[in-house]
Amino acid sequence: MRIKKYPIILLLGLIILGVFVISMNFKDKIVDNSWISELGYTDDQIHSLTFNFKGDRGCPEIPVALNNKEYRLLFDTGCGSGIALTNVVEDSLDYELIGKVQQLNRDGSHRGWSKQVLLKELKIFGESYKNIETAIVDWQMSSSKEFSGLVGLEYFIGRIITLDYTGYQMGIRGNPIDYSSLNKKEYIILPLHKSTEESQKNLLFFEAKYKGELVIVYLDTGKNHSFLYNPNSTFAMGGNVPNLRNINIEVGDLELELSEIGEVHDIAQAQGLPYKTMIELNSDQIWKSNLLVTFDLIEGNIILSKR
């Protein structure tokens, strides 16, 4: 009795082909977690990230407990004041009203007025802070979409923070990085430059090359559109910026093509920096460039890696 081999072989071939197609479709969704051990994190130092938008313009959110109730606040490296809340969550907060305060844009111009309040306690990743003065602002003052509030780097001084947008996770710890163990071809290490302005001392500035010239890049995870400084532009950040373009920059040995950058005339020039701030690099470019970003707030470095 003959066994019909060909149908069986054909069936096996179709199964193998199907497995291959499925693996190709999902290969981009496989999370590369090698950075966790390479940067010296342990599993208990890894936390999940959520984002306020889906797709490549989402800004990261982290859990913050206010008077024992948890909220998801934007993790905003452009927030120099530490923490700010919005009227979205105002009715659910237990606070003491102190007065009112003027809100300023990064260039020092007037943005609006907000309530100044006192919170009894807030907790961020297990760290507790008491009697916190902060502001409750109208969310429409700085966003086109409702958000609960934001928290900046003031609460992360002396920490290492890694943002893995693709993997929807974040590393945070207090012990230093062992730089001798890092692959310098994979991880680009640059010093963070400090502004001498008090309101900008905790913001992130690093150097890059644009058109062969050294410039300063300002990194702000709390925005989802990136900008190029052009003093002759007629467009500002807060309005419609139609003239989008692609530009190339060199960050150490890493070459990045930044797409859909808006040219504006109002990128603030912080005092005390060695070069002109030409680029505001925000969450959209972290997504599009598939960057793993680490802020070493112990030794004052930024570490970039393409995943």
Rank of each mutant, 00 (worst) to 15 (best):
M1E: 13
M1P: 12
R2D: 13
R2I: 15
I3H: 09
P7S: 12
I16V: 15
G18Q: 04
G18Y: 07
F20Q: 05
S23W: 10
M24L: 14
D28R: 13
D32M: 07
I36Y: 11
S37P: 01
L39C: 12
G40S: 07
Y41R: 06
H47I: 05
H47K: 10
N52P: 06
D56W: 08
E61T: 10
V64I: 14
A65D: 15
K69W: 03
L73S: 08
L74K: 08
G80A: 14
A84Y: 09
D91H: 14
L97Q: 11
I98G: 00
Q102L: 03
L104G: 04
N105Q: 12
N105W: 05
D107G: 03
S109A: 11
S109G: 10
S109N: 09
W113K: 07
L118D: 07
K120V: 06
K120H: 09
K123C: 13
F125C: 12
E127I: 01
Y129Q: 09
Y129C: 13
A135I: 00
V137R: 01
D138Y: 01
D138H: 06
W139H: 11
K145R: 08
E146T: 00
E146D: 10
F147R: 03
F147L: 02
G149Q: 00
V151G: 04
V151C: 08
G152R: 03
G158E: 09
G158Y: 06
I161Y: 01
I161C: 03
T162Y: 02
L163W: 04
T166Y: 14
G167P: 01
I172W: 00
G174A: 13
N175P: 02
S180T: 12
S180K: 02
S181T: 13
N183D: 01
K184W: 02
K185L: 02
Y187F: 11
L192W: 08
S195C: 04
T196N: 02
T196I: 15
E197M: 13
E197N: 06
E198N: 05
Q200F: 11
K201I: 14
N202E: 13
E207W: 05
Y210C: 10
V215C: 15
L219R: 08
G222S: 11
N224D: 14
L228I: 13
Y229C: 02
N230D: 05
S233H: 05
F235R: 13
M237D: 10
N246H: 09
V251G: 01
D253Y: 04
D253S: 11
E255H: 08
E255N: 13
D266R: 00
A270D: 09
A270G: 09
T277P: 00
M278T: 07
I279Q: 03
E280Y: 08
S283Q: 11
S283H: 11
D284Q: 11
I286D: 05
K288Q: 14
I302P: 00
